[in-house]
Design a binder for these strands. Sequence first.
DNA 1: CTCTGTGCAAACGATTTGCATGATG
DNA 2: CATCATGCAAATCGTTTGCACAGAG
Lengths: 145, 145
Amino acid sequence: MPLAAELKSRGLPITRSRRAIAEFLDASTAALSAIEIIDHLHSQGITVNKTTVYRELDILEREHLVVELDMGDGLKRYELSPRQHHHHLFCASCKKVVCLPVEQDLGEVEKQLENQTNFKISGHDLKFFGTCSDCLSITGRDQDE
Amino acid sequence: MPLAAELKSRGLPITRSRRAIAEFLDASTAALSAIEIIDHLHSQGITVNKTTVYRELDILEREHLVVELDMGDGLKRYELSPRQHHHHLFCASCKKVVCLPVEQDLGEVEKQLENQTNFKISGHDLKFFGTCSDCLSITGRDQDE
DNA sequence: CTCTGTGCAAACGATTTGCATGATG
DNA sequence: CATCATGCAAATCGTTTGCACAGAG
């Protein structure tokens, strides 16, 4: 179910801002920051105040429809709540975030760590960093062009 | 070699602030934020301006004597440059950061990912989150005490 | 009238920068 | 005097908050 419909089914009114933000999140394969959402909407001629965007993201998070994602560059990003646990790949150049299926059972590792460290482990976060093929082909070109 | 000595060997003068910051980093097993360093020094009666601390951390990073660490809570932390790659465990309660030896060869996974995704992968970051035994024993106590 | 949603301005908090001063060689 | 360290205030930047108002039920 699309985000907007999901919100509506929970009794939240579908306003123009809410619909625009929800649809952009639905349409995007990448995790989005508030700033990216604002810029995108403005480029579409839709004026939304940043406060509205931040508040909307809070609501979506509270409704567990999106989750916060931290790629370590100081921006909070949000992605649709994943059906299954996965990891991320982050392009240092264009900031694109690609989702990756889980490759190995880190849950096993967590149990081992609990025994070794006496921590109660609640989860993990595995990120890969690099440059995506798009950015590679751009930066790979002759700089004089 | 202690941090301060290392800095001196590189021609940087050892001032009171520099020594204090370096010694605290040397003595600490955890990754430290600028704020933690400032608070600690102030509690020791050593007045250092925050600007000085931030600048000192920049210098140490530029000299590759410390590395920046992002635990996703909005603060930059710094740890002595590790001799070997490792991962981290982060206590959500007291913000303690514990280092972990590498459990598995994620380098292998990186190669697989490069083939699957066309990313050029430069590294990864694996963090575990939870609560340390100290904090567990505190929060586990009867709240009425 | 009572909710929310909205916008604007101001506050926030960690970090950075500009600029003047101080210490050291 | 030349260099670098230092302190202070102000700026920055993403994010949050306070407050007033608009719009729907």
